[in-house]
């Protein structure tokens, strides 16, 4: 609120993006009916949204985004198969461990995406995040490699440099 200058700079593009998203959603839900009302509602929504909760638009890179989406779909199906195998196996092969994962991503949007993603990929679950440290519950040993892979994919989407194997 106090940082007037950057907020003003980012507010109009943010409003336009929110408005466009709301309008597309209107067309999708209404089957293309009442576009004029949709335009009015989207304008109002964009105005209120950028007034009450303005965000900053992130520059996303298309090719890494598609690569991340593909990785996500594959890994979440693998995650489903992995957990199903553990659940249906008579001996229930579980070796629950806690991992303190050092997160290199800086942007909050990237961190949020990372936390959402790792709970859906094989064997890992995000329990707590404090700054750059994520508390991960894992169902077996050697889960860090998968986490690192996702972190690097997200870093590429947001144009951050991937980190090497660190602490």
């Amino acid at each position: 609120m106090i940082q007037v200058q950057p907020a003003l700079g980012g507010r109009l593009p943010w409003a336009l993006a929110v408005g466009a998203l709301l309008f597309v959603l209107w067309l999708l839900l209404g089957g293309g009916q009442g576009p004029v009302y949709g335009l009015m509602a989207a304008t109002a929504g964009a105005g209120i949204g950028s007034w009450l909760a303005p965000g900053t638009l992130q520059r996303l890179r298309l090719r890494p985004l598609l690569r991340f989406a593909a990785l996500f779909v594959v890994r979440s199906v693998v995650g489903g198969i992995d957990i199903s195998w553990r659940a249906l196996h008579p001996a229930m092969p579980l070796q629950p461990t806690w991992i303190r994962y050092d997160l290199g991503l800086q942007k909050p949007a990237g961190r949020a995406l990372f936390m959402i993603t790792i709970s859906l990929t094989p064997g890992t679950l995000c329990a707590e995040q404090q700054g750059g440290e994520v508390h991960v519950h894992a169902l077996g040993p050697d889960m860090e490699r998968g986490l690192r892979e996702i972190e690097n994919a997200i870093a590429a989407v947001f144009g951050e440099s991937p980190r090497g194997p660190g602490a």
Binding site: G80, I81, I83, S84, A87, L94, P96, S119
Partner: peptide, 30 residues
């Protein structure tokens, strides 16, 4: 089938964190 596995995990797994794994992954794949 994945929903079945999710339910089985929810009922069979020994602690709340493992059950969370079963729910989020199996059910969303399903």
């Amino acid at each position: 089938g994945f929903f079945f596995a999710g339910t089985m995990g929810l009922l069979r797994f020994p602690d709340v964190f493992s059950r969370l794994h079963a729910l989020t992954k199996a059910d969303n794949t399903g």
